[in-house]
Nucleic acid binder design. Structure first.
Lengths: 325, 325
DNA sequence: CTGAAAGCGCTTACAG
DNA sequence: CTGAAAGCGCTTACAG
């Protein structure tokens, strides 16, 4: 920077201003500075800037997986929104509470202007570290329950209940549930609760439950069908907590010669791209992962610039009806 | 840090050493320091560390998309490898040369220890900036042609040629190609060239070509079938540059009552999870996106620690035969 | 609108 | 093994 200042015949201060607050420096001085900078290939050192100003224009995000379409959408939303506002994204993929703790610790050393988390279940040490740091926080994909600072999500319970009711209204009477293990995690549990509530309302049994690992992929749906049909041979429908399980179930029906939805109905969750393409189309809950990412980034930036945004944002959901039920 | 030093009754230097080079400070002093740090909730300021040392322990990656399984795998590989080595990932999603340039500029201000790019086609300004910065570079998903510094990928031409030959050997005689637009991008073009070479070897026509946007998704396969079958009614096979197009084509066959592979054959590229699940299973080229990410991260870290790694790494590919051809 | 001074919180290289 | 000094490249707050 001092090189640029010398080259342009001004003080370092003016160079700094020419980059950060161009309107404050006289047009011709600014021009001289920018020309000198270009000639020297000068790129301002943001590290020094962060240290001096205490603002990093960097936001960290922790996601459990990048392969999952939902979180991929969220990351895309974060990335788009942050880029638009001149911020950068520090990404950490952490699929366990322990890895999350480690990631948080190293991320905190970078002094981000905010941290975006997934869900509301964290290691106690993580919570302590975050609280201590005072950094603005957004928890995503969850809306109810205790939150640390801010949250962006939708009503998981209601979304699952809506789909449960739809299945009931279509006349299915032995409806299974394919969920994520471990089932006690609140992000997972709320969906199950909503589903069960809908079945109980209708006086149907609500204990046809199967749990597969988040990483199970399409196999989750196949396994759920096998296990639940063994448990209840009259099983006529399956609600899956992810379209991936649901599409796996559809493929399994195809292999077994079951005609969907005549012989068996399948409903999903996520409205991933494949839901609209598979034959028959998948009836599913459309979640708004991209919007969650954008909203979360927006909250952090608002706070970083001194605003006091609403602490909880509900991006909603939608039931998309296609041919699979 | 000085608070911790005071609390522990040592100099700031020793606090620094206790964190960065614990073996250099006496066990009991170290213990005293770490206890004090824990009590005060001290997290070392990595920003100041970076400024002072010139090393950021941060690696930036630019990918065109995070929704594409291939790049999602690469990002996962990067993330895993970097986390293992105590580095962090600065992620930028840039789907055009112009956005790439912007991203590079802002990323460079952060003084990363290395930058990982996708492909080898960049804006001239981008190249100038990168050269000037002297930061270690890895270009991914490409191996041939000019590279800026280091590269990790596989032989795209050969992979496509292998699949082309397989189709020919199975007796298909009117084989179409569903590629990405714009077709002149080298990452895309090499696949087409390999495919065409295989057809010409066999004396077959090699001009049944269709290009869809990278963002076309499953629709790419559907469109390719419609256009190419109109162009050549005897079309009996389709090679797609992504499994997504291929699965889209399979679904289209299903809708039209075409039995695969009896009436029509489909081959893909990527070996995404769905390739093994769809009915019939998709014959495809297995690419190694995860390994590309890991290797790229490894190259940067090696260089950051003073090593001189091999400039090009070939992670290979594999043809996976299932039921679709 | 422009500039000289102090300081952000570390690390480096050197001395003890 | 431990520490006092200088410096990394900016920004802040203030004076001119």
């Amino acid at each position: 920077m001092s090189d640029v200042a010398r080259e342009a015949g001004v003080s370092p201060m003016s160079v700094s201003n020419a980059f950060k607050r161009p309107e404050i420096v006289q047009p011709e001085t600014r021009e001289r500075i920018l020309t000198a900078a270009r000639r020297l290939g000068y790129v301002p050192n943001g590290v020094a800037g962060t240290l001096a100003s205490g603002r990093s224009r960097m936001v960290a995000a922790l996601v459990p997986s990048i392969r999952n379409s939902s979180f991929a959408r969220t990351v895309q939303g974060l990335s788009d929104q942050l880029a638009e506002q001149g911020y950068q994204l520090l990404l950490a993929v952490a699929d366990t509470a322990e890895r999350e703790r480690q990631a948080i610790e190293s991320v905190l050393g970078r002094r981000p202007d905010g941290i975006i988390l997934t869900g509301n279940e964290h290691h106690p040490d993580t919570i302590r570290l975050l609280r201590q740091s005072g950094v603005p926080l957004v928890e995503t994909w969850i809306l109810s329950g205790p939150i640390l600072d801010m949250a962006v999500g939708f009503d998981l319970n209601e979304a699952a209940q809506a789909m449960g009711r739809l299945l009931v209204s279509r006349g299915y009477r032995h409806i299974g549930f394919a969920g994520y293990a471990p089932a006690e995690r609140s992000r997972f549990l709320e969906r199950q609760r909503g589903f069960q509530a809908a079945l109980r309302e209708a006086g149907l049994r609500d204990d046809l439950l199967f749990y597969a690992e988040e990483t199970a992929g399409f196999a989750g749906g196949r396994l759920a069908m096998a296990v639940l049909r063994a448990q209840e041979p009259r099983l006529d429908a399956l609600f899956c907590v992810t379209d991936i399980f649901a599409v796996g179930a559809l493929f399994e029906c195809q292999r077994q010669g079951l005609v969907v939805p005549r012989d068996f109905a399948v409903a999903g969750y996520g409205d991933f791209e494949i839901a609209a393409e598979v034959v028959p189309g998948l009836t599913t809950v459309r979640t708004r992962g991209y919007e969650i990412g954008r909203a979360a980034a927006h909250l952090i930036v608002e706070r970083a610039e001194g605003g006091i945004p609403a602490p909880r944002i509900d991006v909603g959901f939608e039931v998309i009806i296609r041919g699979s039920i």
